[in-house]
Amino acid sequence: MRHDVFIAGYGGQGVLLAGNLLSYAAIYEGNNVSFFPAYGVEKRGGAAMCTIVFADGDTGSPVVGSPTVSLLLNPLSFEKYAAKVKRGGVCIVNSSLVDITGVELPGIEIIPIPMNQLALEIGDVRMVNMVACGAYSEMSGALAISSLEAALKKALPERNHRLIPANITAIEAGARAARAKKA
């Protein structure tokens, strides 16, 4: 199986860390992984995006034109990238920042998750990326929540390992919110 996921937001939302986490989780499950980052010239506040492709065989193109799943964390990335999702694919949107009222994209399922709100409830808005990863895991079924949790040790630098329990809480909150949408 070959899976691909696109993540975009603004700098500071932890887009690249989310991509790294999904990559490590995919490796943990025995996949080959390609992680392709792209970001604006600005160090902070600019656009941040990445594409992750994982497969039990060849990952193929690291560049994906129409992602199967997109995680869009801010209004700008929703405007730019939502319509690029593959027909039959899923667009998981941070509905805390993106107003999707009345938006319809033919053939694309839009899943609104109030990611900022869920992160704030856990106590830190910076957990927004973890909420997104949890929602991805649940919606795609491509990676187990337990793999994400195991991958935190690799994705986070040693000095941030004390934050692992909070990150796990955020991942699970994201997954729970997505499960509610599925039902």
Binding site: S23, I27, N31, V33, F35, F36, P37, T59
Partner: peptide
């Protein structure tokens, strides 16, 4: 820069 910047296993 694609091959240089991307990460793979």
């Amino acid at each position: 820069s694609v091959i240089g910047q991307m990460k793979e296993s």
